[in-house]
């Protein structure tokens, strides 16, 4: 069983909770980044929550997901721990990548998260390879890659989708069309009206769904998963969505105006799904507020955990370079350190 499915009342409430959790996580990550607490760059998922949650609700825990640079929402949807995620954003040793990866490189084998990725279009080849493994080992799983609208222009995405299609692999490609590839509008980067039209080039099904509607995304991915498990190959799903924040925090966004953002906010995925659940009698306003308060507490705890966690030691830079220790790395690790420390630790 999936952690949550949109087929049941409990599952729908869990889907709403996860969307709230993503929004709270990323709102907080943005604030802590702007405070200077979190280093590097952060690309926030706020506005796109329905795509990640609708997608992962249709997957089983053992299914694989390859993410993007805007990956926090995918990780939370797939069930990763916000504390360990936040610790990674803070560059702490307890984070998912020991504080060496940061916001753009969160990965977790146990959760089937093949990794967020700093390179646009890097997910689909990973998913195609994971799908080939599944196929070869004859397991009942699928591999799914998220990609942005911008990634559709990358050569490696074409190569990956073509291979998966040609070999009928159990793969799913979810294109999150948030209307901008970085700062350039989607229509200036692609000649097709719908990015799902590109599926025709591979003779696989291509569908465009409302990415602000968690149910619509869930249904499309469920259908794609059934198809993949039946041995009928991959599906390309375009989810039309919108990021409320800039491409990255600090983006001065000359390419759009507030009115456009407002227009999309009127169709907010969380607000509309909440209203729907209330209408169906599956949620009350009070329960929603309780859910919101619980989510805020979870994220506040995650931040406290991350702040309190230790930074990696300098010699940890050499950890996990190779499966077996190699003399060169041992030699490097024992060199004097920049901070005046004398010897590094034993890399074994």
């Amino acid at each position: 069983m999936s952690d949550y499915t949109l087929e049941t009342e409990a599952g729908r409430r869990e889907a709403l909770r996860r969307m709230l959790l993503i929004r709270e996580f990323d709102t907080t990550a943005g604030e802590r980044f702007n405070d200077g607490d979190i280093p590097g760059f952060v690309h926030l998922y706020i506005g796109e929550e329905a795509v990640g949650v609708g997608t992962c609700g249709a997957l089983e825990p053992e299914d694989y997901v390859a993410s993007t640079h805007r990956g926090h929402g995918h990780c939370i949807s797939k069930g990763l721990d916000p504390e360990l995620m936040m610790a990674e954003l803070y560059g702490k040793a307890d984070g998912y990548c020991n504080g060496k990866g940061g916001s753009m490189h969160i990965a977790d084998v146990e959760a089937g998260m093949l990794g967020a990725n700093g390179i646009v279009g890097a997910g689909p080849p990973l998913a195609t390879g994971a799908a080939l493994t599944i196929d070869y080992q004859d397991r009942d799983q699928v591999a799914l890659a998220f990609g942005g609208d911008g990634s559709v222009a990358q050569g490696q995405v074409h190569e990956a989708v073509n291979l998966a299609a040609t070999w009928d692999l159990p793969a799913i490609f979810v294109i999150e069309n948030n209307q901008y590839g970085e700062a350039t509008p989607v229509e200036k980067q692609h000649n097709v009206d719908n990015l799902s039209d590109t599926a025709g080039a591979y003779d696989i099904p291509g569908v465009t769904v409302d990415g602000m509607d968690v149910t619509a995304v869930y249904e499309a991915v469920s259908e794609a998963r059934d198809r993949a498990l039946a041995g009928d190959g991959p599906t390309l799903i375009e989810a039309e969505t919108y990021r409320y924040r800039g491409h990255y925090e600090g983006d001065h966004e000359p390419y759009r105006d507030e009115a456009e953002i407002e227009q999309w906010r009127e169709r907010d995925a969380i607000e509309s799904f909440k209203e729907r659940l209330i209408e169906r009698g599956e949620l009350t306003e009070a329960e929603f507020e309780e859910m919101q308060a619980e989510v805020e507490e979870t994220i506040a705890d995650a931040v406290a955990y991350a702040k309190d966690a230790d930074l990696p030691d300098p010699e940890q830079a050499y950890d996990d370079m190779f499966g077996e220790p190699v003399p060169e790395i041992q030699q490097f690790a024992s060199r004097p350190r920049a901070d005046g420390g004398t010897e590094g630790g034993d890399p074994t």
Binding site: P39, G40, G91, K92, A93, G99, K100, G101, G102, L311, P312, P314, Q316, A317, Y318, M321, E328, I329, F332, R337, A338, D339
Partner: peptide, 12 residues
Amino acid sequence: DVPFPLYALEDY
């Protein structure tokens, strides 16, 4: 001889 490390290790 490692991939560029994030943050805490960058100064080293």
